[in-house]
Design a binder for these strands. Structure first.
Lengths: 170, 170
DNA sequence: GTGCATGCAAAAACTTTGCAGATAT
DNA sequence: ATATCTGCAAAGTTTTTGCATGCAC
């Protein structure tokens, strides 16, 4: 199965937003930043710094760790990326395109991550926030549990498991 | 102002659950584990490893870092504690008594954390999980936003800010 | 007694930072 | 030109591990 990729125009749009942010801040567009951002935007799901580095190095082998950290920090600042610290291990990042409306359902057994969206919940959380006088800027909603297979149901499978070992990418 | 404390019987109950877990696993009850668990259960809200170590050392000064890490891992395993990695910084932990039904509303400006509970959302998330064949074991739901004061509304205040520096509890 | 637990210190894992040379504007 | 970037390596943080001794069972 082909790695999960976002449509190209999405990527272009996101790249544009990123470049605009850099300009606005008086920062520079560099080959490295382009490569990192593009690798990042081109893949759905979650990426660790390490994975992103590996991806970006396909296009720019001399790329260093620190640059990825620094670029991801920029992307986070301008809202095009978001940290997702699930369970243990490293911090994962997710691109803005994925953010809009995806919450997570995580299998504690297999570690696989599914995304879901539910209008009812979104509405209700807005309501809750309002009752406290809050304005919600972003949110995170994660359900940790067991998939059918992990619960020992024959034939049941941890959705997302079969196709790929640990992440929905290359 | 007195530190936020849980009722004593709650603590006793939690301690009992912890000891039962240790026994079931063929592990031992030690003074250190007791002190750590009790310090942990006795306080509502979020604690970092470091804070917990400091608390526990009041009762057992020779206590080491590693023991806190190891004990907190045990508590997490048996569901009596949960990791809460909010923004940046360190990992925070929260006791089971707090977990049941508290989700979080975090002010990005002041950093204050409010807790909320909404049955509608709970129900809906169960439903979502079921639709994927999942059984939810635990969840985390965090809304990040701005409190009235942060939005510049005169007279508005970041709930939880006034009374106490960091948590809306007791 | 036996085996798990502890404390310490060393090691590992993950991030951040400093700097000299390279580069975008 | 000039201020920002980059890569590397060093320094910081946070968490885990190894081991000899100590303690619970």
């Amino acid at each position: 199965m082909a790695p999960a990729e976002r449509e190209e125009n999405d990527v272009d749009g996101l790249m544009g937003q990123f470049r605009a942010y850099l300009t606005k801040k008086g920062l520079k567009s560099t080959r490295q930043r382009d490569v990192i951002a593009e690798s990042f935007f081109s893949h759905t799901g979650h990426l660790s710094i390490e994975e992103l580095l590996a991806l970006a190095r396909k296009d720019y082998p001399r790329l260093g760790y620190a640059t990825v950290y620094r670029t991801l920090k920029l992307l986070t600042e301008c809202g095009l990326a978001a940290e997702r610290r699930f369970g243990e291990g490293q911090t994962m990042y997710e691109a803005a395109g994925d953010l809009e409306h995806h919450d997570h359902l995580i299998c504690l057994e297999c570690g696989h991550v599914l995304e879901f969206h539910n209008e009812e919940i979104e509405r209700e959380q807005e309501r809750v926030a309002r009752s406290f006088g809050f304005t919600v800027i972003r949110h995170r909603h994660e359900l940790y549990g067991l998939c059918p297979r992990a619960r020992g149901i024959k034939g049941g499978s941890c959705p997302g498991e079969d196709a790929r070992p640990h992440r929905p990418l290359a």
